[in-house]
Computed example of a mutant assay.
Amino acid sequence: MTALVFLVALLVTNALDERQSDVWNLTASVVIGGAALIVQYLVDFEKRLEEIETSQSGLIRDVKENLISHHVALTDLVDDRFRRINAATELFSNVDRSVLRSDAVIKLARRATECGKLNNETLKTFASEEIERLAGLLENLSSRSADCLGENQDWLIGLTHCIKHSLDATSTSVDHDFWTSEPASRYLEAQSDAIARGVEIRRLFLVSSPDDIDDELTELCSNQRALRIDARLVALSELPSWAQPGTQSDFIVFDRELSYEIDQDTKDVNAKTTLNARPTHVEHRLRQFTRLWDATLRLPHQGFPQPET
């Protein structure tokens, strides 16, 4: 571009004044070409300066946006961590204030964390399922009712270990096979321990008619009375209508506060276990048991076998 301006300037100076020497014409062309070069340089410099300013503006804008985004993310992260810390602090404060054993709850949390660090996916998955199951049970218990499929004998034995005052139970024909099982031995052992603590245990073995009372059932009742369980046999057909239970489901009332119930399906198989601590329901079960018990004591033989004197 500068060379072109130089040539044009040289031709123009030669054409305008042919009398000037070649040195003059050459000098004028050089000056004009140099001026053009400077102008071109300044124009290019201005363009590059504008490009740099534009690029720097975009860079500064991107940096500002990134800083704002980073600040927002960092703020959210800090807020989330503080919320978790506050939640954990509140949780452990509630545990300390509750009647539950805080050391056991803390131990559960610590052991759950340790299981999560193990390099064993099967074990970690099983631990997670068990924690979820326990959390679901505690959530249901907080609403005073929980249930599970089948007969939960662990609940039965665990509750017997917890009672302090009384255990009132009914046992129908569906329950008779249970008494020859291994869990029954642990259940009776737990009852013996409870009696040693001063717990009063009463049990009614219910049958439909006196014909259903055989030697095996009589021996079962006698064996439990030998353990200081106030056990009695009663035929429902001999009871007045006001004492009839209405349903044949087995139930156990622990400390007059919680009812453990077993529901049967159409084939008289134990289908579901329910824990119910709602006061109205527990009171209903207590009235039902009291009617049965009082009516049994009014029978001429006072149930089978005869109470020991």
Rank of each mutant, 00 (worst) to 15 (best):
L4V: 14
V5T: 11
V5S: 10
V8I: 15
L10M: 14
E18K: 10
E18H: 15
V30W: 12
Q40I: 13
V43N: 11
L49N: 15
E51P: 04
I52N: 09
Q56A: 09
G58S: 08
I60N: 13
E65T: 08
V78F: 09
T89M: 13
D103Y: 00
A109S: 11
E114L: 15
C115D: 10
N119G: 07
E132M: 07
N140G: 02
R144V: 05
A146E: 01
G150R: 03
W155F: 13
H161F: 05
K164W: 07
L167F: 07
D168S: 14
D175V: 00
F178V: 02
F178H: 05
A184V: 01
Y187I: 01
E189S: 05
A190M: 07
Q191Y: 00
D193E: 09
A194L: 02
V199N: 01
V207Q: 04
S209M: 09
D215E: 15
D215H: 13
L217A: 02
L227K: 15
D230V: 02
L233V: 01
V234M: 00
L239Q: 03
S241H: 11
Q244H: 14
F251C: 01
F251Y: 08
I252N: 08
F254A: 06
R256L: 03
E261A: 03
N276H: 10
R278I: 14
F289V: 05
T296Q: 04
R298P: 00
R298D: 11
Q306T: 14
